[in-house]
Design a binder for these strands. Structure first.
Lengths: 239, 239
DNA sequence: CGAGGGTTTGAAGTGCATCAAATAGTGTGG
DNA sequence: CCACACTATTTGATGCACTTCAAACCCTCG
């Protein structure tokens, strides 16, 4: 089991600058856990002591108001990390995290990471780089929600699900519930449904459940990216 | 002049861990500049070689689409920094920056900062901390734009302009054009105007140009923060 | 087959955007 | 100090996008 964790941890790009001893030490304090849909990892304002690396699955980050409405901040998957903002700023999680598709995560004590960052400049740099990238994504997200209408936001979302360098006919699988995609894009499920069929008409598409076949990938780019400041491909700019 | 820069730079909290030699070296490569309203510091996708520290004034960060519509990402002022995301990720600015109220800025070569960060772990940590804080703000911003309506967003904005620990009657000065406030909050000028008078009715307020007098600060908190996940005060959570 | 959640569709309402025009405010030159 | 020009702000009228509430449909799974 611990063997497996060392293996996993050593493959995380963020940690590539770290010594074997450290990775070993970290691994011994870490856990590889599997959670199924619905499990809440932590709630907003919980005291933060754990850092997460997502091996597989999907995890929703959200904030909730007293009256029950919630804003989905992001939905993370393989390779993404959680809890990094709690390393420095404060010891409370700034949002809640819930498993939305059965996920495997590696949990690590924030304290160990914190001290390693303090002594390993390369890890600090890797962390900075990761954070800078995420900030750009969030900026892009604000732009998307400000300038794009519902069908365009869906189009943009679909583009990011497709493998790179697509041409012509392209098949895309929605990674989770349509209702969840809707909330990820800041709209109601009903709006999503209607906006998707609007998109289907504007860009030739076939929709069968979660499987979407786009007749001509370039049409989708044209449709979704025309209301975007960064041209296509927006690469890691896009959340 | 260089004297003045050393003075200014040494007072920047971000650099408090830096050696005097470094600060001196940095100061000699830096400039203290004054720009008036309308001046564009850089455009999105310009190659990034300069880091900015704002001494005074207000600077708008925005992204623009081909068809001319723009999304305001943030509006920064005294103590804020610009260009930090370009230290690692790529060498292009991810947004454009324009002076909106006459500003004094210190300009520094990104390259010098970059190498210092690589050798000074404390600076790296300070940078990480600053970035983490900003990320939380952006998350909050996404929540605000998702869950709050126009009058509430204005209320939230006003709260952040007031000095801490206010009670009862409070006077607030808008720091820049109402049109600009509108765009900062992701709405049209007309919507801002109407939403402000709605707010004025909901919470007792007097509005004279850019001066807003709130009869009872607590009422405003109640009104603006009820649709917010973080209670009042949201402190550095709020952008 | 039937229960229950996810999804779609319909009808009606709301909030914000848009277009147009009036008004207030600001700085300028006479 | 005033009249003018120009911009910022407000107000009105209308339209559209998205939401909300309600109900039907569909799909999966026991």
């Amino acid at each position: 089991m611990s063997e497996q964790i060392v293996n996993n941890i050593s493959k995380i790009p963020l940690f590539e600058s770290c010594s074997d001893e450290f990775l070993d030490h970290l691994a011994h304090q870490s856990g590889l856990k599997s959670y199924s849909k619905g499990k809440v990892l932590f709630l907003s304002n919980d005291s933060a002591d754990t850092f997460y690396f997502i091996v597989s699955g999907w995890i929703k980050l959200f904030k909730e108001t007293i009256d029950g409405s919630q804003a989905v901040i992001d939905i993370l998957t393989t390779g993404h990390i959680l809890g990094d903002t709690s390393l420095f700023q404060s010891d409370l999680y700034p949002y809640s995290a819930e498993i939305v598709e059965t996920a495997e995560v590696i949990t690590m004590p924030l304290s160990i990471l914190k001290s390693e960052i303090e002594s390993n400049p390369k890890l600090a740099l890797a962390m900075l780089s990761s954070m800078a990238r995420y900030r750009r994504q969030q900026d892009q997200e604000i732009e998307n929600r400000t300038l794009k209408n519902a069908p365009q936001r869906i189009g943009c979302f679909l583009l990011r699900l497709a493998p790179a360098n697509q041409t012509g006919k392209t098949v895309i699988q929605l990674p989770y519930d349509k209702t969840l995609v809707a909330s990820r894009l800041g709209m109601q499920p009903e709006t999503f449904s209607r906006a998707l069929s609007k998109l289907k008409t504007a860009v030739a598409m076939d929709i069968k459940g979660a499987t979407i076949t786009i007749q001509n990938y370039e049409d989708l780019i044209e449709y979704a990216c025309s209301a975007c400041s960064s041209g296509f491909p927006c690469q890691d700019l896009c959340a």
